[in-house]
Amino acid sequence: MSETTNAGGPATEPNYDRLLRANLERVFNERDAGKRTAALAELFVDEPVMYEPTGIVQGRAAISAVAGNLLEQFGPTFRFTPIGTAVGHHGLGALRWQAGPDGGPVAVTGTDVVEVVDGRIARLWVLLDQPTA
């Protein structure tokens, strides 16, 4: 490894686990659009970008719509559950998750990777695991 210096002293890192778990619970598991909108305002920057395997989603309202559509599409007990603890440093965090019906089989697994700016999510990459055969 190379030698590093930190001229300004240690920067305060965000609590990646709290932030990423809140994103799962308060945005992607929230069925009430008003509560989801409030969570997005608290957790995300003004103009966030989400990168999904099928496209790029820009803005809080568009991210809220994607979350709401997912929940509606997969039924009333579908939810995302974190796997382990989020890790991160220098503004980049990651949390593994699984999703499926509550108490049912896991339908999909993946990882959320975020860029955090001033304690809020600026960019979110949704990485889906390949289905197992």
Results as ranks from 00 to 15, higher is better:
31 R>K: 12
129 D>I: 05
93 G>Y: 05
109 T>Y: 09
23 N>M: 14
24 L>G: 03
128 L>F: 12
102 D>P: 10
109 T>W: 03
112 D>P: 02
132 T>N: 12
22 A>D: 13
29 N>E: 06
114 V>N: 03
49 V>T: 14
81 T>V: 15
130 Q>N: 01
49 V>A: 05
27 V>K: 08
6 N>P: 00
32 D>I: 04
82 P>T: 08
73 Q>V: 10
8 G>F: 08
86 A>P: 08
90 H>M: 11
23 N>P: 02
99 A>N: 08
31 R>I: 13
17 D>G: 09
113 V>H: 12
120 R>P: 13
128 L>Q: 12
45 V>I: 12
9 G>C: 08
17 D>Q: 11
128 L>N: 12
65 A>N: 10
75 G>N: 03
43 L>W: 03
117 V>R: 14
20 L>K: 07
125 W>Q: 03
20 L>Y: 04
106 V>H: 07
7 A>M: 11
54 T>V: 14
94 A>C: 13
24 L>R: 04
19 L>F: 07
90 H>W: 02
93 G>H: 06
34 G>H: 09
18 R>K: 15
105 P>I: 09
65 A>C: 00
68 G>L: 09
2 S>R: 13
28 F>I: 03
33 A>Q: 11
84 G>V: 04
125 W>S: 07
61 A>D: 15
1 M>S: 15
132 T>L: 15
116 V>Q: 03
96 R>V: 03
77 T>H: 13
86 A>N: 10
55 G>E: 05
92 L>C: 11
85 T>E: 15
46 D>R: 12
128 L>C: 11
88 G>Y: 02
67 A>R: 01
52 E>Q: 09
9 G>Y: 10
41 A>H: 14
64 S>Q: 11
35 K>S: 14
72 E>L: 02
104 G>Y: 03
25 E>L: 04
34 G>S: 11
55 G>H: 07
22 A>I: 01
64 S>R: 01
104 G>K: 14
10 P>Y: 00
25 E>S: 12
116 V>G: 03
109 T>C: 10
116 V>K: 00
110 G>W: 06
84 G>M: 05
98 Q>G: 12
42 E>C: 02
45 V>R: 08
119 G>I: 02
124 L>P: 01
87 V>D: 06
125 W>L: 08
30 E>F: 02
92 L>W: 07
95 L>H: 02
78 F>N: 08
